[in-house]
């Protein structure tokens, strides 16, 4: 049982690893699809809660996979999920960096990079909308998202301060 879950984690996040053009947030919708819809490991709301916890921790924003792995298979699940997510892309980076200097001036590289940008933009927006629809449980949580988005866009307030204020308001019972 656990063995097959670990294999699933490895296959899912290993594949996600090589599709993560534009960084972690671009594969958020695919992770949610696999974890919630295909595997049925948790609900969309539970996934959003885990994503929020990962966001509150330091480090790269892809670490939600550690929590997904932890939820479905404990510590070994967390480690397998993280290593599967990091392994394939790291190996690719290791080998590509050696030929990078020949690669970077090639005209097709600029074309590929320019072509990937709108896809990354669409993917991150998809992840943002999927998350927002699950986290907006009512007027108050919707207002938190709207206000926090404005703060992130128009001020230089540290993100962690915004997250802390939201969590404190929530804990105090002012929102839900």
């Amino acid at each position: 049982m656990t063995g097959s879950v670990l294999t699933d984690l490895m296959l899912i996040f290993g594949q996600v690893s090589l599709l993560a053009f534009g960084g972690g947030n671009s594969v958020l919708p695919e992770m949610q699809r696999q974890v919630v819809e295909v595997q049925g490991w948790m609900t969309a709301r539970e996934f959003a809660a885990l994503y929020a916890l990962a966001q509150a921790a330091p480090g790269p924003n892809m670490l939600v996979v550690a929590l997904v792995g932890w939820q479905v298979a404990g510590l070994s699940g967390a480690l397998v999920a993280v290593l599967s997510l990091c392994g394939p892309s790291s190996v690719l980076t290791y080998f590509t960096v050696r030929i990078w200097f020949r690669l970077r001036d090639a005209p097709w590289r600029r074309a590929v990079q320019a072509g990937l940008l709108p896809i990354t933009a669409g993917l991150i927006m998809a992840g943002a909308v999927l998350l927002t629809t699950t986290t907006t449980t009512g007027l108050a949580t919707g207002a938190v998202t709207a206000a926090a988005t404005a703060v992130f866009l128009f001020t230089r307030v540290h993100p962690l301060i915004v997250l802390a204020i939201a969590a404190a308001l929530g804990a105090g019972g002012f929102l839900v």
């Binding site: 959003a48 929020a52 986290t135 703060v151 804990a171």
Partner: peptide, 24 residues
């Protein structure tokens, strides 16, 4: 209180991705 804090935290974390999506 923990459950409520995480619900609010999730709303703010979604905002972080939303703001990032707009910037990208």
């Amino acid at each position: 209180p923990v459950r409520r804090a995480v619900v609010a935290l999730a709303a703010a974390a979604a905002a972080f991705v939303l703001a990032n999506a707009i910037k990208v």
